[in-house]
């Protein structure tokens, strides 16, 4: 299995999608630094509100950073792994390797671990970069415990996306899986955006309920965006600040958190990932090549 993990890492290191992601990351960090500086400099207008404003600015910068950061992370995960099974089978690459004396479940697990570990390492680098940039220009939470919790939530999208992508690779052609994953992630993201925008908006209870139902259903199928919102809520300690002010109404440009999912939802996302993982493994185990 270590051979399969090593093969996956080598593939990722040499594929153009990873290089593109790294270039995008560098560009993103540069642009993000400029934006963070501008946002950071605009605080402190009213001295009585300075502490709150500093926090709001830090929260805005972090939210903005992780909004795009989660995009780049998803881009890396989806586009590096969407063709891993069906694509390899289409060019008979898989056929020559699966005839080797290795159990199929080990192959699947090896691939999953390879993509997941690589994604988590990348997520860690990205997380540190975003927090470091935000910390340079604004006040950000300093609690190590909060950051560990936040990072774990940020990184939780990696196994989730890898799992769904690999399952899709056992169900669809390489191209079909790429389209499927993009659409699925896009739907999750759209649901999250609706959630964020509606959180700060003044709307009728029936309309709000309908919107929550729709976004909730989308989150059940693709919980990535909801996990990201939970990550921000944990990092910014939204629950404890709830009595003081509504962070969504304070943050600029719709960069809110919306209704952060509960701990139960995170548990659901974990179970969902595990179920889809075993479903994918079973399909791979039974698949005719």
């Amino acid at each position: 299995m270590t051979t399969v993990i090593g093969m996956t890492w080598k593939e990722l290191m040499r594929k153009k999608v990873v290089m593109m992601t790294l270039i995008m990351t560098v560009l993103f960090i540069i642009v993000f630094s400029f934006i963070a500086r501008i946002l950071g400099e605009s605080s402190g207008i009213d001295p009585s509100q300075q502490l709150v404003m500093q926090f709001i600015n830090g929260a805005s910068i972090l939210t903005l950073g992780f909004f795009f950061g989660s995009f780049i992370l998803a881009f890396l995960i989806i586009f590096s792994s969407f063709s891993s099974i069906s694509g390899e089978a289409e060019i008979s690459m898989m056929q020559s390797m699966l005839t080797r004396p290795i159990q199929r479940w080990k192959w699947y697990l090896g691939r999953w671990l390879g993509y997941t570990l690589f994604g988590i390492v990348y997520a860690l680098v990205l997380y540190i970069a975003i927090v470091a940039v935000a910390n340079t220009y604004a006040t950000v939470p300093q609690s190590l415990v909060l950051h560990i919790q936040s990072f774990l939530l940020f990184a939780l999208t990696v196994p989730l996306l890898v799992t769904v992508t690999l399952l899709g690779a056992t169900l669809f052609s390489a191209l079909g899986n790429g389209v499927f994953m993009t659409m699925l992630y896009g739907a999750g993201w759209l649901g999250g955006m609706v959630e964020k925008l509606s959180a700060g908006a003044d709307m009728k209870p029936e309309m709000a309920r309908s919107l929550y139902n729709i976004t909730g259903m989308i989150s059940l199928v693709m919980p990535a965006d909801a996990i990201q919102r939970k990550m921000l809520a944990v990092m910014l300690n939204v629950d404890q600040l709830a009595g003081m002010f509504n962070i969504d109404q304070q943050m600029r440009g719709g960069m809110g958190i919306g209704q952060a999912p509960s701990a139960t939802f995170i548990f659901y996302a974990g179970i969902y990932t595990v179920i889809l993982f075993f479903w994918g493994m079973r399909r791979f185990y039974k698949k005719d090549f």
């Binding site: 093969m7 080598k10 593939e11 594929k15 690459m93 020559s96 080797r100 004396p101 290795i102």
Partner: peptide, 25 residues
């Protein structure tokens, strides 16, 4: 086994492909 109409990992060298198969064995 030599499959029909196959392609190997184009991001690897020939030596690396054979090494990969030897490790899988």
């Amino acid at each position: 086994y030599l499959p029909e109409l196959y392609r190997y990992q184009e991001w690897l060298t020939g030596e690396e492909v054979v090494r990969l198969h030897s490790r899988l064995c």
